Amino acid sequence: MRPENEEELSGMVRAAASPLRIMGGGTRDIGKPLTGAALSMSAMSGITLYEPGALTLVARAGTPLADVEEALAREGQRLAFEPPDMRALLSTQGVPSVGGMVAANASGPRRVQAGACRDSLIGVRFVDGTGAVIKNGGRVMKNVTGYDLVKLMAGSWGTLGILTECSFKLLPVPETQATLCSAPMSIEDAGKVMSAAMGTPYEVTGAARTPDGHVYLRVEGFERQVAYRCGQLRDVLGGAWDILDAPASAAQWLGIRDVRAFAECTGDVWRISLQPSAAPAVLARAEWPVIMDWAGGLLWLLTPEGVDLRAQLGEFAGHATLVRGSQVTRTRLSVFPPQSPPLAAISQGIRQKFDPRGVLNPGLTG
């Protein structure tokens, strides 16, 4: 199925007698393996509104992300949250789309400074599991459901509704960027350095440690400001730091954003979100290659195939998601973090509200 407008999509959902497998751009094969009729949003494409002066863009859900980024680049603007491209890591061949990005709440290294995808999202339109067209936020009707639907839809993985249109606030592209690169250091020392850097007034927009132990700190802005802030960071942090110029800096952060260090490696890939201060203690229980992003608040771990990372780590204050694994592993293990009984009851109640028949990606997040 490939609807071309909301009316067709609504009719397809209402007529569905069995589960629907919602497809955005087909680049994020994450979650429990699904059965059911594939419903592709690729035909519902195009930028419907772009006002550079108002830093606002509205695009249909099937719009290739590359089209949006190209249009923004012509005006010297960008999406603030640096959405990652998972194709290399997951060995997928699709095209990243606006709807898929929002459904996954896909957010890259700049999240430490600019927030997540949901923080830049100002409006959504979607079709729920009954076939009703719902709109909320941005330039559309005021929501009267009692839910903040804009935030609710970001990261819902198509289980509450099928996104048809998304509205974003934008940011200007800085004049330049540079990145400080350290000598290899331990996970504990890296955590301390990244925390110290984020606590300075020098507006670090990326803080990460790669598997080889190097710490990278990104600064963006006007050329003179960037040079000054890099110098100040060097003085505050101490130690030896190299500085990557703008092209090298951009290339380095593209690799961190897309988890490319693990793309050609065999094994499963897990994503852990937690308080940055908790990262060293958690990683002490898992001696596998790791990328630390978001100043230690996001960990990417490469484990042997089939490892139950949650069992390995035990209790910790955070969430572990299996991003890459075989279908056998994704069937055997809970892909997304298990919820406590009270939270699971709330989630089930919300899903019942928006998809009472259980036709939208049922079981994906189970």
Results as ranks from 00 to 15, higher is better:
286 A>L: 14
286 A>V: 11
286 A>Y: 10
287 E>Y: 05
287 E>A: 14
287 E>C: 15
288 W>N: 09
288 W>M: 13
288 W>I: 14
288 W>F: 14
288 W>G: 12
289 P>H: 09
289 P>K: 00
290 V>E: 10
290 V>N: 08
290 V>T: 14
290 V>A: 04
290 V>M: 05
290 V>W: 02
291 I>M: 11
291 I>V: 15
291 I>E: 15
292 M>H: 04
292 M>G: 13
292 M>I: 13
292 M>C: 13
292 M>T: 03
294 W>T: 14
294 W>R: 05
294 W>L: 03
294 W>E: 01
294 W>N: 06
295 A>S: 05
295 A>C: 08
295 A>E: 07
296 G>M: 00
296 G>K: 05
296 G>C: 08
297 G>H: 07
298 L>M: 07
299 L>P: 08
299 L>I: 04
300 W>F: 02
300 W>Q: 00
300 W>D: 05
301 L>W: 09
301 L>P: 07
301 L>F: 12
301 L>G: 08
302 L>A: 11
302 L>H: 09
303 T>I: 09
303 T>K: 02
303 T>H: 07
303 T>D: 09
304 P>L: 07
304 P>T: 11
304 P>R: 08
304 P>I: 09
304 P>K: 00
305 E>R: 00
305 E>Q: 01
305 E>W: 03
306 G>Y: 06
306 G>T: 10
306 G>E: 10
307 V>A: 12
307 V>I: 15
307 V>T: 11
308 D>Y: 03
308 D>Q: 09
308 D>W: 02
308 D>E: 05
311 A>R: 13
311 A>N: 08
311 A>E: 06
311 A>L: 12
311 A>I: 02
312 Q>L: 01
312 Q>S: 13
312 Q>I: 09
312 Q>D: 04
312 Q>G: 07
313 L>I: 03
313 L>D: 06
314 G>N: 05
314 G>W: 05
314 G>C: 06
314 G>L: 02
315 E>I: 12
315 E>D: 14
315 E>A: 15
316 F>Y: 14
316 F>L: 12
316 F>R: 04
316 F>T: 09
317 A>N: 12
